[in-house]
Computed example of a mutant assay.
Amino acid sequence: MESAIPAHLRTERTRHRRVGDDYAPPYPSFVARHKPSVTRVVMAYFGIQSRGALNAAAELALARLTSAFTAADGPTHWDRASYVDEAAFTNIVTVAYWDHRQKFDRWFAAARESWTGDQRTNDGFGTFIEALYPSVEGYETLFSSLGRPEGVAVLADGMSGEVLEHAYWGGMRDRIPLSQTSEMAPSGAARAIRDGGRIRIIPHDNVCLIRSGQDWADTEATERKMYLGEVEPVLREGMDFLRDQGRSIGCYANRYMTVLGPNGARAEKSYGMSWWKSLSELERWAESHPTHIRIFGAAMKYLSTLGPAAKLRLYHEVTVARADEQLFEYVDCHPQTGMLNAVQVVDG
C-alpha cells in the first residue's frame, strides 16, 4: 500500500491525516504520478457561450482553437465538453493541460488575444478563460481503475499502486501534499475589473477547483441500466443543486458536462467541474449535505452490488491555488458564468 503523496513531496507533518497507518481502504484506488522534474502544471478552460446552438463564427473559433493546440508549445492533452447552464445558454468548454509553465506562457500570449482579447471577433457569442497554474504540491488525483487516465493525469509518467488515503471523509485533503503543513484556508476577497469588453476576476487565495468524472463506455446491459437509471439521476440532482443554489454553501459555480468526442459527438463520459471558495466548503458539502449523501449512497449501493465486476470508471482532480496561480477572464458572458458569481463587477 502506497501513500498518495509521492516520496519526493513528503515532508514532516505538522497537520495530521484523518486516518492512521493501520487504515485499510475497502477497495483499491490509484493516483497519477508525475516525474519528479515536474514542479507545476497548467489547467486552462476555454469556454464559448451561446444562446441556443453555436453559430458559424463560434464554430470557427472552436476550430481555430483546436488548430492552435497543434502549434509549438501547445498542450500535451486537451478535451472538450458541453452543457446547458442555469441561464439556458449552451456552453462548449475545452480544457487543456501543460506540465511546463513556460511553454504555456509562450503559447498563451497569442491564444489569449484571439479568445478574450482585442483580436476576438464579437459575433453573437461569449468567451471565457479560467486557468490555474498550481504547483504539484497543490492538487491531487484519484482513479477507481488503471488503464485510462483522464484530465491532468494524462500528463503523468504513470499511475501509482494502490494508495492508502481514500474511501474516508478527509481523504481528498490528505492526498494534497500541501495538507502536510497547511490548512489551505482562503484569504482575501475576489473582485472584478472591467477592461474594455473584458471582465477580469482578481481572485482570492486558495480557491478550490474540482473536476470529477464518470466513464460508462465499457459497461454492459445490466450495469449500464443500473448506472443510468439509479446513480446518474441522483448525481444530476446534486450537480443541479450546486449549479442553482451552490453559492449558499460556498460553491461559486458548477458545470455538469458531457464529454464530446473528436468528431463532436457526445461520448459516454461526463464530469462535474466546480469552483469553490475553499477546500473546506467542498468537504462540508461532500460529508454532510443531503444531495451528496444521496450521491454517495447510490454509488456505494452500485459498487457493493457489482463488486470487482463493475466496469464504470470514476476519477477526479482537486486543486487548491494561490491567487497568483489563477486567471479568470470573461467577454460577453451572462453574469452567472463561472467566477463572475463570486464578485460585483465594476468599471476599471
Rank of each mutant, 00 (worst) to 15 (best):
M1L: 12
M1T: 07
P6E: 07
A7Y: 08
A7F: 11
T11I: 08
R13Y: 13
T14R: 12
H16N: 09
R17S: 10
R18Q: 05
Y23Q: 02
Y27M: 08
S29R: 07
K35M: 07
S37G: 13
S37F: 08
R40T: 06
M43C: 06
M43F: 01
I48L: 13
S50F: 06
G52V: 10
A53R: 05
A56I: 05
L60M: 11
L62K: 07
L65N: 02
P75D: 04
W78H: 06
Y83M: 09
V84P: 01
D85E: 10
N91Q: 06
V95T: 05
Y97F: 10
W98T: 01
H100Q: 10
F108A: 13
E113W: 10
W115P: 01
T116L: 08
T121Q: 15
N122T: 15
D123M: 01
E130Q: 10
P134H: 05
T141M: 00
M159W: 12
H166V: 00
G170A: 14
G171F: 03
M172G: 06
Q180V: 01
T181Q: 12
G197P: 08
R200L: 14
I202E: 09
I202M: 08
P203E: 06
L209H: 03
I210Q: 01
R211N: 04
G213H: 02
G213A: 12
E220T: 09
K225V: 14
Y227R: 05
G229S: 14
E232R: 15
E237G: 09
G238V: 01
F241N: 12
R243Y: 06
Q245K: 14
Y252A: 03
Y252F: 14
T258K: 08
V259D: 03
N263Y: 11
A265K: 02
A267V: 04
S270Y: 09
E281H: 07
L282A: 07
L282D: 04
E283H: 09
E283A: 10
H289T: 09
H289D: 11
H292V: 05
R294W: 05
S304T: 07
S304N: 00
T305D: 13
G307Y: 15
H316G: 07
E325M: 03
L327C: 10
E329W: 09
D332M: 04
H334D: 12
T337H: 03
M339N: 08
N341Q: 08
A342H: 04
V346P: 06
